[in-house]
Design a binder for these strands. Structure first.
Lengths: 337, 337
DNA sequence: CTGTTAGCGCATTCAC
DNA sequence: GTGAATGCGCTAACAG
């Protein structure tokens, strides 16, 4: 004889003197039940501390009521608003959120995704390095997926939510030119192959071109979206005696690195060199001087992505491409008072 | 007639010409199977793209193979190493991690925890504001729970993983006294009722007492573990002309606030006033001067907590109280070169 | 070593 | 409105 380990719907039904079907109906409000018996059921459930077991309902319903979020790591400041908004939205819509973080180091290795049809109803993917093969497989079985901050391969019609990298970077570079009269503007690139990095660089180039400033290749270096490489690059420029009066960093992390290199070399910011970043990461306003940057609308991206995902799950058509605007955040590192 | 929506174990069994039991045994390596048929099964599974449905195995096994992590928010830098280590460890041990973040604003409201027996095998809780009632209920049904960074109510034998707040703060305060000759040392308290805050203040007081420095109540103010309140407090002290040559901040966030207030008032750090923090948050080394602080071993806490939790899940006894050491991180804000 | 069978706990038909 | 019966997909006995 087995021991009943936890209270099930049967216990509640017995206690309330009704069938399990009725208990289910009351608790899920799926069908009308006479109020008097409904009350009995609720009382019994409450009294026994009954909580429906997720696995059982998932199995019975064929849905998990769970959304998955795939992240490349938790190490970046950048994620915070994004993850917050996704968390909230999922809760609001009654979904459980399963977050998986890609194991470090395991690059290119074919491995099974921890999240998928087996445990979620849909997936939010923010991971550029995701196997295209995986994505293809997911798409082939019509599994609901929305990409965050990056576009799918051209032949795959997977909805994505993007931000206006190009326009944001163009605008902030232009601000340096027209607002502060800078002409020798250096650029700290993000990782090669990274979409955001690519688009941001385009924006930088577009602004120069629009104002008749020729691109000086010796003023474009690796920032890698990280502090250390950016610092090294700028230190190298200084050591070589390159002449620049502003630095446009690919993101706020590399802006921090630039600031540091400048400080060590005794260059004053923004007086000698103006510096701007991208993302408006939480750090941005702790840097000194406070960093002028482009705000990436993380929270909005999260909300939009969940909305599209829910649409897919509901079998409706989703926006294939949601483009969210960025905005300038003027602080002091550009030279504004 | 229903349409089979996704490939199940039956499909694999049919394709391989074996029973579902054998498929299960091969895929879970739960019992030996002749290699030749095992290979057939694997091939079939692979070919069909079979992925066992989590809900079904959970239901059949009576376990979810899932661990829950309850966080108060994602807004704090402090979490990063902690969450990373928990994530990794869970993956290493073959568990799925379900992260829930307490909905903002819903204070004191009796609400059902999103995580519990219904969807996890055990819970890691880092949320001081958790209803004691909830904790009691969990404990009553012997549900595996480990508390992070805070102790359970005295009458509840729930394992917890703590760090040496008191000793860490004592040591860093002493460093200011013996290493840099400071005597007028102010303190920026954390939130009232917060355990960490309380213990850290004890450490501060202990160091003063040990060196015969009387506690000056006018030099103890609210830091709230946040930048803005700390800045306000220090600005107020300065405006009032209070005399101090060092500030011990309850955490790195309030240290940042202190630094800012000092800078605005033209006080030089560390020359005029030394400043130290607690946590060694990622920000700490971006502050200027780089912040001397106490390292809270976030990653170690995560690993220890998971290990204890797995022990509980396995039905073994767990350490009721794991105390992890903190360590001094000497940078420049204390006056060291 | 392998196939057969019986649930796991719940939602959901179908009858009444 | 309500109860009885069925099945979701899988694992774990139990036989063989």
């Amino acid at each position: 004889m087995r021991i009943k380990s936890s209270v099930t719907i049967d216990d509640v039904a017995a206690a309330a003197g009704v069938s399990t079907a009725t208990v289910s109906r009351v608790l899920n409000k799926s069908l009308p039940v006479v109020e008097s018996t409904a009350a009995r059921v609720r009382a019994a459930a409450d009294q026994l501390g009954y909580v429906p077991k997720a696995a059982a309902r998932h199995l019975a319903q064929g849905a998990t009521n769970t959304l998955g979020l795939l992240l490349p790591g938790v190490s970046d400041d950048f994620f915070r608003p994004l993850v917050s908004s996704i968390t909230e939205r999922a809760a609001e819509t009654g979904y459980t959120l399963l977050i998986a973080i890609r194991p470090t180091g395991r690059a290119g290795q074919a491995h099974q995704l921890p999240l998928g049809k087996q445990n979620t109803d849909g997936l939010l993917i923010f991971d550029q390095s995701l196997y295209d093969g995986e994505l293809q497989r997911l798409h082939a079985i019509h599994f609901p997926v929305v990409l965050l901050y990056h576009a799918p391969p051209a032949d795959l019609a997977v909805p994505c939510v993007l931000i206006e990298n190009r326009e944001g970077m163009r605008a902030i570079t232009e601000h340096l030119i027209t607002g502060h009269g800078r002409r020798r503007i250096a650029f700290l690139r993000g990782p090669i192959g990274n979409e955001d990095a690519q688009q941001r660089e385009e924006g930088y180039r577009a602004a120069l071109a629009a104002h008749g400033i020729p691109l000086d290749p010796t003023l474009v270096g690796a920032g890698e979206f990280q502090e250390a490489p950016a610092r090294a690059t700028v230190a190298h420029w200084i050591a070589e005696g390159r002449n620049f009066d502003a630095i446009v960093a690919g993101d706020d992390g590399s802006a921090a690195g630039a600031l540091e290199a400048l400080r060590q070399a005794g260059r004053r910011v923004p007086h000698d060199v103006a510096v701007v970043g991208f993302d408006d990461a939480p750090r941005a306003c702790y840097l000194s001087p406070r960093l002028t940057t482009v705000r990436a609308p993380g929270a909005a991206v999260g909300r939009a992505a969940i909305d599209q995902l829910l649409r897919l799950i509901a079998g409706q058509a989703a926006e294939l491409r949601t483009l969210l605007p960025t905005s300038l955040v003027i602080r002091h590192s550009c030279g504004c008072p």
